[in-house]
């Protein structure tokens, strides 16, 4: 019994302060991503969500270069990117692709510039790795309340516009005819999306933030018939894969003899992929229904 326990939880897992911070940030980020992600998938804006990840990467890299807080960089530029996408025309279906493509390209270019300047000017090694692929074990404990507060704002925004957003997703014309300010509601959602992607860039990296945004939501959409249930299930899946990913990454230090931990982001993304595959299995579907 004890042997099995220590095989699952390698020594010091529950005592490690880094694990505590990682679990707190990972859990918060997973919940915020799952909630916004359900709407992202329903609105068919996964590509837009990914582009915002690239924008946050540029923000994170810029913040490193300027010596600012990475959270401010990731989230701040993400919101600006969401605004630009709305201006270019993210509301129209064709305009949406265009807006996303233009913003995404520009953002990656800026990231390349900022990261090169950072790695050549300062002593910060691994900046590229941190910004693009995350560094959840190195986040300072003081970041947790900031992540919690920003996440709460994003979730509150979604809660306020919940019904109008759903109606506008199904039919913008019906929503507009009912007097709903469709563009404003869409903008509130885009801002929540930007915050959510910014936060998850901090945790699992800008490039991989899409996985935590889309994966759990896509799993939930396959398994439930109701929007509210999909939101709840996406949160559960998101938190489960994130915490399990943290555990596996911690344990991986003790695997083999190399004494080198594998990246958390890899485990989280692998688990997201596995759960998406599992959600397609009929037996799993019946179990949840």
């Amino acid at each position: 019994m004890h042997a099995a326990y220590s095989a699952i939880f390698e020594p010091g897992f529950f005592a490690s302060p880094q694990v505590h911070v990682a679990a707190a940030i990972g859990g918060l980020v997973a919940i915020v991503s799952a909630i916004t992600g359900v709407f992202t998938v329903m609105r068919g804006q996964s590509f837009g969500g990914h582009a915002l990840g690239d924008v946050s990467a540029a923000g994170g890299a810029g913040a490193l270069l300027a010596g600012l807080s990475p959270v401010a960089g990731f989230v701040g530029l993400g919101i600006a990117g969401a605004g630009v996408m709305d201006l270019i025309g993210v509301r129209r279906l064709r305009g949406r692709d265009l807006a996303t493509g233009i913003v995404l390209g520009t953002a990656i270019g800026l990231s390349a510039l900022f990261l090169r300047l950072t790695t050549t000017s300062g002593a910060t090694t691994g900046a590229t790795q941190h910004v693009l692929f995350g560094s959840i074990f190195t986040v300072p404990a003081g970041t947790v309340p900031v992540v919690g507060a920003l996440g709460a704002v994003a979730v509150a925004a979604i809660a306020v516009v919940y019904r109008p957003l759903l109606l506008a997703t199904v039919s913008p014309d019906v929503a507009a005819a009912r007097g709903i300010p469709v563009r404003l509601v869409g903008l509130a959602y885009m801002a929540a999306l930007a915050v959510s992607v910014g936060l998850s860039s901090l945790a699992i990296g800008a490039i991989l933030s899409t996985a935590l945004l889309i994966g759990p939501a896509a799993v939930a959409l396959r398994l439930t018939r109701r929007t509210g249930h999909a939101v709840g299930l996406a949160c559960l899946v998101g938190v489960a894969v994130t915490w399990l990913g943290i555990l596996l990454a911690y344990d991986s230090f003790y695997w083999g003899t190399s004494r080198q931990a594998l990246p958390v982001s890899f485990f989280i993304v692998a688990l997201v992929f596995a759960s998406y595959l599992a959600s397609g299995v009929p037996a799993v579907r019946r179990m949840v229904r």
């Binding site: 929503a175 009912r178 929007t227």
Partner: peptide, 18 residues
């Protein structure tokens, strides 16, 4: 993820916030 009855309910209160 929306049942027929959920879509009809949105017709009743889809313009309400919260």
């Amino acid at each position: 993820p929306m049942r027929a009855r959920d879509l009809v309910a949105l017709g009743a209160d889809g313009d309400r916030y919260g």
